[in-house]
Design a protein around this nucleic acid. Structure first.
Length: 861
RNA sequence: GCCGAGGUGGCGAAACUGGUAGACGCGCCAGACUCAAAAUCUGGUGGUGGCGACACCGUGCCGGUUCGAUUCCGGCCCUCGGCACCA
């Protein structure tokens, strides 16, 4: 056996073995328990980044662990290949997005392979391939016919200079990123998935997902946002009709002093017809982007419309205001305003001098008037006519009766969730399979004309969709009447592709169906792993799609992902210098040296190139903009994939953010070298004899206990807790013990052999290459990848004596060692006899003695 | 603004069900080896005081519950993720 650890050679050898044996090819096997382990597929941005490496290493460790549990494991990989970055790169480099994307896939596939992931590469898919998106289009046409997809107008960011729709990401400080023009809101027709039809089920389904993190389920619950409330109708003061509002606080209605409508509300447009000032205000509301964060943080502004409505209970006239804080997309696009009991209304009323009328008081007290802030708790109604004295529930019930009798409203369930607009005015996406015919309307493309193929030799310009300028693409005939017609040129949101790829992996090669019967074997996904940033949108859309496909008879079960692991981000230190004008120039951590004082504290950082200091900018997510990304490839080339995998799994538990540390990587490399050396020294002594347990010395039994304690801890940490960092720490402790255990006797060597085998098996999911070779060197013919997970021997864990901590009044005062079988009385006696404990108990009478067996004794005096 | 997380030595972290705060690693200090350096090995390493045994302080801040709180409860501060067209 080589004396030195040579990762390059070992990793090439192990990977060649897995390739040759088709180790990771997954086949349906009746009778064998399947395990579908899926990591979120990457966007082919060019090169693997550390977040990818983390994601796929976690997935691979779980997949390999489950394989050792005897499961039939599927771990596939593919490419989320449509998207905006390809268009940006295309414009920058004047290459077609398709060519750029395929090049990136080629490069990144090789990078993934160098990580030694146990992937079944035969199942690789790319969402930009017609074989894939054809089925997305097929499903679209089915859903369109069912009414689960429909067309309506929606708000987008409009760049008036470039004459194009901008993604939220392309709006920077309210301006278009290329033109610098002030962005406006604009309404355009779009196709929508009727996800709200599944709102109730998407909400209820969360309760069945016991394998999901509570925080993700909470976020989805809040996102769906089911609320019980009241629809109320405010009759117009003049003319026919009512203004509908939705409120969760009907009990406050007697404190309503005005109503407010969104700038896009039809009533606002009507009022503006003869009101140039209002018209100007509505125009002003169109300025700025369309994101909720922007709308929620902007200064609240409004203008009286001049119109009035009647209070549904009192007939009192209430002014109608147009306000920028009312969202057209939620509820009715109109609210009743109760400044005394709603924070936004309070702020608005204070600003514009509108009346504030308090009608709710705390259950056990009075309101301090005048109000300094809105009182938003539920309480008891007062100054509310016949409703005075009622609580929320009583008021709700009574008001519902009256409103229904008058025909002016009723209780209603409202969801915050909105239908999913999927039209994108972009080129590099899946074409929406609709043909517009003047006579027949919107006609879905018939099955036999699918796929609608996206032409690939196109370089976009940044101004509108190139498809809309390509008659050869959009000129077509109507499938219904045969007349001249125009093909839809919008493409779909790329979230659509990523909503069903997990199902396609089960049958990636069929050209007969979206998914075939093999999906029944593999689905649902047993373990899904990906970034926490996908907690809401992607994961909600994928759950929605699973239900759509279920209702089409394509898949079984109600949920796609049984267990979910949301990994944290990879972050790193940032370094910069300020340039003239205050602009920051960021330096990569690889080019910076850190200087420390004699206690190890960072004193300053200098740029290696010129030896001059740079400023430390704090820990940030690895990104191009802060230039703090660390290239995984350089590290793999230098230390090997095992070292990178080990560091990533050791530095933090998977759900936390991971702070990058080059020194930590070197530490991981050092550890692997220590493992290698220990095995190499042991193997040099020739084969070890069988263990003969009754003949072991106390030191050998002790060593063996360490081995089995490690197996027990690592099994629990990896199998149940997914805390790989502490499992690795347990292995490190064992290695430290083994280095101290110098026993060349035959049984000493047998104990060592058992320890090294356990250690290699436990490490093998994390650092599979080195373990592949070490296992063979330890004398095994079968590859470690095909070995079962080790079991611990409970008999090896027993101890004769235990050390207890002794506290006096909860403060640690000493330690005592007692027999493992000591009675409570013996334990108390031993604790009280401890000299330092006596000092603190002396002269006082113990009030109470608390004994936690095996842990501590607390003497209360 | 709203929703969800997080905050523990010089640094990454550990402490799983309320029971020894800091396992393991990095860094740093000292020693061994070396002509020297690197590598490697050994030991030390939360702060303050003390020759020492030890003592006091210490898990973002303020308060509470408890024999005992990093852990539970109330309030606050800061950082991060998401907010529907980045993926």
């Amino acid at each position: 056996m080589d004396e030195f650890y040579n990762p390059q050679q070992i990793e090439a050898e192990a990977q060649a073995y897995w390739d040759r044996m088709n180790t990771f090819r997954a086949r349906e096997q009746a009778g064998k328990e399947k395990y579908y382990c899926l990591s979120m597929f990457p966007y082919p941005s060019g090169r693997l980044h550390m977040g990818h490496v983390r994601n796929y290493t976690i997935g691979d460790v779980i997949a390999r662990y489950q394989r050792m549990q005897g499961k039939n494991v599927l771990q596939p990989m593919g490419w989320d290949a449509f998207g905006l970055p390809a268009e940006n790169a295309a414009m920058k480099n004047n290459v077609a997005p398709a060519a750029w994307t395929y090049d990136n896939i080629e490069y990144m596939r090789n990078q993934l392979k160098s990580l030694g992931l146990g992937i079944d590469w035969e199942r690789e898919i790319a969402t930009c391939r017609p074989e894939y998106y054809r089925w997305e289009q097929w499903l679209f046409t089915r859903l369109f016919k069912k009414g689960l997809i429909y067309k309506k107008s929606g708000v987008v960011n409009w760049d008036p200079v470039d004459q194009t729709v901008l993604a939220n990401e392309q709006v920077i400080d309210g301006r278009g990123w290329r033109s610098g023009a002030l962005v406006e809101k604009r309404e355009i027709p779009m196709y929508y998935f009727r996800i709200t039809a599944y709102a109730e089920e998407l909400l209820a389904g969360l309760d069945t997902l016991s394998g999901w993190p509570e925080q993700v389920k909470t976020m989805q619950r809040n996102w769906i946002g089911k609320s019980q409330g009241m629809e109320m109708h405010f009759p117009y003061a003049e003319g026919e009709g009512v203004l509908k509002v939705f409120t969760t606080r009907p009990d406050t209605i007697m404190g309503a002093t005005y109503v407010a409508v969104a700038a896009e509300h039809p009533l606002a447009a009507q009022a503006a017809e003869n009101n140039p000032a209002l018209q100007a205000f509505i125009e002003e509301c169109k300025k700025g982007g369309a994101t909720e964060a922007e709308l929620a943080t902007q200064e609240k502004k409004g203008m009286a419309s001049g119109l009035f409505v009647r209070h549904p209970f009192t007939d009192e006239l209430l002014p109608v205001w147009v306000a920028n804080y009312v969202l057209m997309g939620y509820g009715e696009g109109a609210v009743m305003a109760v400044p005394a009991h709603d924070e936004r209304d309070f702020e608005f009323a204070t600003k514009y001098g509108l009346p504030i009328k308090a009608v709710i008081r705390p259950v056990d007290g009075e309101l301090e008037l005048p109000l300094k802030a809105a009182y938003t708790e539920r309480g008891i109604l007062f100054d509310s006519g016949e409703f005075s004295g009622l609580d929320f529930d009583q008021a709700f019930a009574r008001m519902a009766e009256i409103l229904q009798a008058k025909g002016l409203g009723q209780p209603r369930t409202q969801f915050r969730l909105r239908d999913w607009g999927i039209s994108r005015q972009r080129y590099w996406g899946c074409p929406i399979p609709i043909i517009h015919c003047d006579r027949c309307g919107d006609v879905p493309v018939p099955d036999d004309q699918l796929p609608v193929v996206l032409p690939e030799e196109v370089v976009p310009t940044g101004a509108g969709s190139p498809l809309a300028r390509m008659p050869e693409f959009y000129e077509t005939t109507c499938p219904q009447c045969g007349g001249a017609a125009r093909r839809e040129t919008d493409t779909m949101d790329t979230f659509v592709e990523s909503s069903w790829y997990y199902a396609r992996y089960a049958s990636p090669d069929t050209n007969q169906a979206m998914v075939d019967e093999r999906a029944r074997y593999w689905l649902p996904v047993d373990q899904y792993i990906g970034g926490i940033e996908h907690a809401i949108l992607h994961l909600l859309y994928a759950r929605f799609f699973h239900k759509l496909m279920r209702d089409e008879g394509l898949v079984q079960g109600d949920e796609p992902f049984i267990n979910l692991l949301t990994q944290g981000m990879v972050v790193a230190e940032t370094y910069y210098r300020e340039e003239a004008g205050g602009k920051k120039h960021w330096f990569n951590p690889a080019d910076v040296d850190v200087e420390r004082d004699e206690k190890g504290r960072v004193v300053r950082a200098v740029l290696r190139a010129d030896g001059q200091p740079v400023l430390i900018g704090g820990i940030e997510k690895m990104s191009k903009s802060k230039n703090n990304g660390v290239d995984p490839q350089a590290l793999i080339d230098r230390f090997g994939a095992d070292t990178v995998r080990l560091f990533i799994m050791f530095a933090a538990p998977p759900e936390q953010s991971l702070e990058w540390s080059d020194a930590g990587v070197e530490g991981a490399f050092r550890f692997l070298r220590r493992v290698w050396k220990l095995v190499s020294m042991h193997v040099a002594g020739g084969p070890a004899p069988e263990l003969d347990l009754p003949t072991l010395t106390p030191a050998q039994r002790d060593m063996r206990r360490h081995t089995h304690e490690m197996i027990a801890k690592a099994s629990d940490d990896i199998g149940r807790r997914y805390n790989f960092n502490t499992a690795i720490a347990a292995v490190m402790e064992l290695i430290n013990e083994l280095y101290k255990f110098e026993d060349p006797s035959p049984q000493g060597r047998a104990v060592m052999q058992e320890a090294l085998e356990a250690l290699v098996l436990v490490l093998s999911p994390i650092v599979p290459h080195i373990c592949h070779v070490l296992w063979r060197e330890l004398g095994h013919e079968r590859a470690v990848v095909d070995e079962p997970w080790p079991r611990f021997d409970p008999d090896a864990l027993t101890r004769d004596a235990v050390e207890l901590v002794v506290q006096v009044n909860g403060k640690l005062r000493g330690r005592v060692t007692v027999s493992a079988t000591a009675s409570r009385e013996e334990t108390e006696r031993a604790a009280l006899a401890e000299p330092n404990v006596q000092r603190f108990v002396e002269g006082k009478v113990p009030k109470k003695i608390i004994v936690v067996p095996g842990k501590l004794v607390n003497i209360v005096v």
